[in-house]
Computed example of a mutant assay.
Amino acid sequence: MPITRRRFLGSFAGLAAAIGVPSLWMTYMKTYDGPVSDHFDGLHFFDPDGAPPKSLGEVLRWQFGGGRKRAAWPDWAPSPHADTPPPRVAGDKVRLSFVGHASWLIQTAGLNILIDPVWSERVSPIGFAGPKRHNDPGIAFDKLPDIDVVLVSHGHYDHLDIATLSKLTASFSPRVITPLGNDVTMRENDSAIRAEGFDWNDRVELGNGVAVTLVATRHWSARGLFDRNKALWASFVLETPAGKIYIVCDSGYGEGKHFRRVAEAHGPLRLAILPIGAYEPRWFMRDQHMNPEDAVKALADCGAQTALAHHHGTFQLTDEAIDAPVQALAEALKGADVPPERFVALKPGQVVEV
Rank of each mutant, 00 (worst) to 15 (best):
V210M: 09
V210S: 13
V212D: 11
V212N: 09
T213V: 03
T217F: 00
R218P: 01
R218M: 09
W220T: 07
W220F: 15
A222R: 06
R223F: 06
G224E: 02
L225D: 01
L225R: 15
F226K: 12
F226Y: 15
D227W: 08
D227T: 13
D227Y: 13
R228M: 12
N229M: 06
L232R: 03
L232I: 02
W233Y: 10
S235P: 03
L238V: 06
L238Y: 06
P241S: 12
P241C: 08
G243E: 00
K244G: 00
Y246H: 12
I247H: 03
C249D: 11
C249K: 01
D250T: 12
S251F: 00
G252A: 01
E255F: 07
E255R: 10
H258N: 11
R260Q: 13
R260G: 14
R261T: 10
R261W: 03
V262R: 01
A263S: 13
E264F: 04
A265L: 12
A265N: 13
H266Y: 15
G267R: 02
A272N: 07
I273E: 05
I273Q: 11
I276F: 02
A278L: 12
Y279L: 00
E280T: 06
W283A: 11
W283F: 13
F284E: 08
F284G: 08
F284H: 04
M285Q: 12
R286L: 09
D287C: 02
H289Q: 10
N291Y: 12
E293M: 07
D294Y: 08
D294N: 15
V296Q: 10
V296P: 11
L299H: 09
D301P: 10
D301S: 08
C302N: 15
A304Y: 01
A304H: 02
A304W: 00
A309P: 03
H310M: 14
H311E: 09
H311D: 13
L317C: 11
E320K: 04
I322E: 12
A324R: 14
P325M: 13
V326L: 01
V326S: 08
A328M: 13
A328E: 15
A328S: 13
L329A: 09
A330N: 06
A332P: 05
L333V: 09
K334L: 07
G335F: 01
D337V: 06
D337F: 04
V338A: 08
